[in-house]
């Protein structure tokens, strides 16, 4: 059997007194596409922010390529809290696209894409420029490279954000409701880019999404998260077309009627 690239082992996460994640166990295989669905406030964002190291688990272990994310061994072989160097060595394999884009407003589109490869990976600037232009071409923005983020539409911004994350060649890519801040008519162009990525590749993806048809189309597995636990998971068709638990049924019904 193939080794998972990401493992969540009994992850708990509390904010103050509120326990938001109540024991998450989750393995993700290389290249696997996982869709994460569930009601608002169920902890979907928190799950992927944990992997991006934007949050630290209250208890439990997260491993990437078998390496413990938040702990490392010191010279004596004892476990100590991970330092920044350790985190950065693991973080290189993970990329993230945010709900609200988080583009850098003081840099052009091209500069947004070139920043991390030049200063983090220390690659040659001309090479990086070439790759960035190709990447921006792939997401359909080759005519916008010299513009600033606030000169773009939401859909265009989100495509830049994707290109920017892809520049680091992550092995796992995280998408947090990347279309939910967009005007309805702009959703399609963004999903299209993700679809191409999914079909093309060996990159694992975790997608938090409310686009059920889209999940059905590209996901290898769908997880239903409810109140901090994974309530049901499995083949997209099983989960989305023939749900077992009452809660999931309820969620899907409410979801489709709300739209």
């Amino acid at each position: 059997m193939e080794e998972p690239i990401v493992q969540y082992k009994d992850i708990h996460k509390s904010f103050g007194d509120v326990e938001v994640l109540k024991g998450i166990d989750l393995d993700i295989l290389p290249g696997e596409k996982v869709a994460l669905i569930g009601p608002s406030g169920s902890g979907k964002t928190t799950i992927i922010r944990l992997l991006m190291t934007l949050e630290q688990p209250t208890s439990g272990i997260i491993e990437v390529n078998g390496r413990n994310l938040w702990q490392m061994t010191d010279k004596k072989g004892e476990y100590i809290e991970a330092d920044d160097k350790h985190l950065r060595s693991i973080r290189g394999d993970i990329g993230m696209v945010f709900q609200h884009f988080n583009l850098f407003p003081h840099m052009t589109i091209l500069e947004n894409c070139m920043l991390a490869p030049t200063i983090v990976s220390k690659k040659d600037k001309n090479e990086v420029r070439k790759t960035a232009l190709e990447m921006l071409d792939k997401v359909g923005l080759s005519d916008k490279v010299e513009l600033y983020p606030n000169q773009l539409s939401g859909g265009q911004k989100q495509r830049v954000a994707m290109a920017r994350a892809l520049m680091m060649r992550p092995k796992v890519m995280l998408f947090d409701e990347v279309t939910s801040a967009l005007d309805p008519e702009l959703v399609g162009e963004v999903l299209e880019v993700i679809r191409d990525l999914a079909k093309a590749g060996d990159m694992a993806m975790i997608l938090v999404t409310h686009e059920m048809d889209f999940a059905l189309d590209i996901a290898d597995r769908v997880l239903f998260l409810n109140e901090g636990v994974i309530e049901e998971q499995g083949d997209p068709r099983e989960i989305l077309v023939t749900p077992k638990s009452a809660r999931l049924k309820d969620f899907l019904v409410r979801f489709t009627t709300n739209r």
Partner: peptide, 27 residues
């Protein structure tokens, strides 16, 4: 400076000094 700017620079694996120099202070 928006919190998302810090998060995006973490996601791109910038070091603390790089976050200040390239992302936070220029804004």
């Amino acid at each position: 400076v928006d919190k998302g700017q810090w998060e995006a620079s973490t996601a791109l694996n910038l070091s603390t000094a790089q976050k200040w120099r390239y992302i936070i202070l220029p804004q």
